[in-house]
């Protein structure tokens, strides 16, 4: 299987303080990779670096056979990295439909297909994004990323702080996406939902890749060692 994304030994600083000390991550096309770790271990920074919102001081990032380590954000998005940022972050004063249309690129994902995945969005298509519930905003953020027809969908804490019913709807959508062959890089804390979907897990600790393997190999001891609180 050809590699879709290869992150090699990246180091990232916020000002003088170092956040990543060498993160490695590899994923193939059509795979779902879970990026795990406790709070503050560098998951979001890794994603920010992948999307070029933070710059690495060392290391290499390759996406779809291309070195993206020096590209600006929008170029990486155009190459096919669709980010669903942490904390939802829709365009608050645009309607649901405008949010989706502003991102549209490519032909496979259309408004109709997003509405099919998230029927709630269709009901709310003329509503302003800031009047939606948290779960609906999350669906909108996922829909917006899908409208860019990404080769790789990046979900950063997509179910954080949502009601269980809504979480289930979002997990269902993620499972449907996986079934269509969508590559997904996913950060989440609900292991019970995450592990059955993931093909591969990468665990970060203190800004380094501490462990990588299949979900089966992630024993309760390992989970406790790296993820337990």
């Amino acid at each position: 299987m050809s590699d879709l994304l290869t992150i090699e030994n990246i180091e990232v600083f916020y000002g003088p303080s170092q956040a990543l000390f060498g993160v490695d991550l590899k994923m193939g096309e059509g795979e779902v990779v879970a990026l795990m770790g406790r709070n503050g271990m560098g998951k979001t920074t890794t994603i920010r670096t992948l999307c070029r919102m933070s710059k690495q001081k060392a290391g290499r990032i390759q996406f779809a056979g291309q070195d993206i380590g020096n590209l600006p954000s929008h170029k990486v998005a155009q190459l096919g990295v669709g980010l669903v940022p942490e904390g939802r972050r829709c365009f608050a004063n645009l309607t649901v439909e405008e949010n989706l249309l502003a991102a549209a690129r490519g032909t496979e994902w259309t408004l109709a297909r997003v509405y099919e995945l998230f029927p709630r969005l269709e009901e709310r298509q003329t509503q302003l994004a800031n009047t939606l519930s948290g779960g609906e905003q999350q669906m909108l953020a996922i829909g917006r990323a899908l409208m860019t027809n990404p080769k790789l969908l990046v979900l950063d804490e997509a179910t954080e702080g949502l009601a269980p019913v809504i979480r289930e709807e979002i997990w269902q959508a993620v499972r449907e996406l996986k079934a269509t062959g969508q590559s997904i890089l996913i950060v989440d804390k609900t292991l019970a939902e995450l592990l059955p979907i993931a093909d591969h897990c990468v665990i970060l600790e203190r800004g380094r890749t501490a462990w990588a393997g299949t979900p089966d190999a992630l024993t309760p001891e390992l989970a406790d060692r790296y993820l337990g609180v």
Binding site: M53, S73, A77, L83, P85, R89, F91, A103, T148
Partner: peptide, 14 residues
Amino acid sequence: QSARQNEERLSAVG
């Protein structure tokens, strides 16, 4: 309008 609200988000959608 997205650019007015948040440029980073806009570049994240390409």
